[in-house]
Structure formats: structure tokens, C-alpha cells
Amino acid sequence: MATNRATKSGFAAEAQRKVNAKYSEELAQECLEWIRTITNEDINCGGDMDNFYEVLKDGTLLCRLVNCIQSGSVKKINNTTMAFKCMENINAFLETAKVLGVPAQETFQTVDLWERQNLNSVVICIQSLGRKAGNFGKPSIGPKEAEKNERHFSEDKLKAGQSIIGLQMGSNKGANQSGINFGNTRHM
């Protein structure tokens, strides 16, 4: 856990401060309130880092959350406080979140939550899961999921587009390479 580590100093401390500065208490509070709505559990919905970490650190609530979104997603939830069992819970949540449609770039690593390394990435993952929950008939949070806007063009339209020279390509009317001598020395 984070309490067993030495305090960071120098570049590591500076990097950790930058990571912690990205954390938004408002978004974290919105995530906790959404989790409370989905799971019907009485949890403290304060958005400060300490509360957010304490509520989610063992992974049991996260596992119950994905089980409420899609029942039976996580088969076994470990209710012990042993480190590797808690990290197993967090990992089970992450794997299920990916199955439910959360992109890999919006997930977090187990240590980001367990060792309190990057709680902002945990918030991002829960927000992404919250957007995907709407696809399973559950209340969603965050911005609405984008809809596919596929366009179909006829063969004639596609061929007409190939004959147009875009203005970004420029024009080379009358240009030649007569004055270019990069790398050449003067010949005598």
C-alpha cells in the first residue's frame, strides 16, 4: 500500500504533484454519486482524494458496480483486506470494464488505485464506464456517447474527387529544378 513506500522527492515528487494536480474533485464526486445510484449502496460521496481512495481502494465496490451493470461479470469478489486479493478485485473490474466497451487508453493500472499513484486515471475510467452504462439500460454520466455517422458515396462521386487537386497541394506551374544545388560544390 502507499503507506509502506518512502516519500517521493526530487523529480519523482514533482511528477507526482503534476499527476495529482489533474485530479478533479467535482468529477470524482460525480463518479461516486453515480456508483451509489447504480449499486444502491450507502457510500460517502465526497470528492476529495482521501475519501475517493478509501471508498474504492479494495476493489469490492468496483466489482459490485460492474456486476450491477451486467450481472455475473465478476464471478468472485474477494472480501479480504490482503493486498494481492484487493488488487485481484481491481484487476477483475478493469478486465470487465474493457469487455463492457471501455477503451484500453481510458483504463488505469491496478497500482494507480491500490498505491494511490494516479487517482485521476481512475476517475477517467469510471467516467468512461458511466458513458457505456447507457448501452446496458443503466443511468449514464458524462458527455453523451457519440453516434456513428457513416457516409456512402457513389462510384461517380468518388471518381470525380480523384481528379480534383486540393489547394493544400499547391501548384508547380513553370517550376523546374535548375537553381537547386544543395550539397554540390562549385565546379571549376
Results as ranks from 00 to 15, higher is better:
186 R>S: 13
86 C>W: 00
47 G>F: 01
39 T>W: 01
143 P>A: 14
37 T>K: 09
44 N>W: 03
49 M>K: 15
35 I>K: 03
157 K>F: 09
162 Q>M: 12
93 F>T: 03
35 I>E: 01
82 M>Y: 11
155 E>P: 15
166 G>A: 09
21 A>M: 09
141 I>N: 04
185 T>Y: 07
97 A>E: 01
55 V>D: 01
126 I>M: 03
180 I>S: 10
125 C>W: 08
22 K>S: 06
158 L>Q: 13
3 T>V: 08
144 K>W: 00
105 Q>D: 13
2 A>I: 10
16 Q>N: 06
187 H>A: 08
89 N>I: 03
42 D>T: 15
23 Y>V: 00
67 N>K: 01
183 G>R: 07
124 I>Q: 01
144 K>L: 14
130 G>K: 07
98 K>R: 12
48 D>M: 04
86 C>I: 06
130 G>T: 00
170 G>W: 03
49 M>E: 12
126 I>T: 05
42 D>L: 08
10 G>K: 06
89 N>Q: 02
72 G>V: 07
70 Q>Y: 09
5 R>M: 03
75 K>A: 06
178 S>H: 14
80 T>D: 14
37 T>E: 12
95 E>I: 13
177 Q>S: 11
99 V>E: 10
13 A>Y: 01
145 E>C: 10
30 E>R: 15
67 N>E: 02
63 C>T: 07
95 E>K: 14
170 G>H: 04
128 S>K: 04
109 Q>R: 15
50 D>T: 07
172 N>S: 09
80 T>N: 12
117 Q>A: 14
69 I>N: 07
76 K>F: 12
58 D>T: 13
120 N>W: 08
118 N>P: 04
54 E>Y: 09
169 M>Y: 06
156 D>I: 07
65 L>R: 12
9 S>Y: 02
147 E>L: 11
12 A>G: 08
159 K>H: 13
57 K>W: 02
174 G>L: 01
17 R>M: 05
13 A>F: 05
49 M>A: 15
82 M>T: 07
125 C>E: 05
170 G>E: 02
50 D>S: 10
182 F>Q: 08
30 E>A: 15
139 P>L: 01
168 Q>C: 14
9 S>M: 07
142 G>Q: 03
138 K>E: 06
32 L>Q: 08
133 A>T: 05
188 M>W: 13
62 L>D: 01
177 Q>N: 15
41 E>C: 07
86 C>R: 09
50 D>K: 12
34 W>P: 06
100 L>M: 10
102 V>C: 05
67 N>H: 05
96 T>I: 10
97 A>Y: 04
143 P>E: 12
150 E>N: 15
4 N>L: 13
136 F>S: 05
124 I>T: 05
153 F>S: 04
79 N>H: 11
166 G>D: 12
158 L>P: 07
187 H>R: 15
119 L>G: 00
153 F>R: 11
142 G>R: 04
119 L>V: 06
64 R>H: 13
81 T>S: 15
151 R>H: 10
174 G>A: 00
8 K>T: 09
45 C>D: 01
142 G>E: 06
67 N>A: 04
66 V>G: 04
69 I>K: 09
68 C>F: 08
22 K>H: 02
34 W>R: 02
89 N>E: 00
169 M>W: 06
100 L>A: 03
89 N>W: 04
175 A>P: 02
67 N>Q: 04
120 N>G: 08
142 G>L: 02
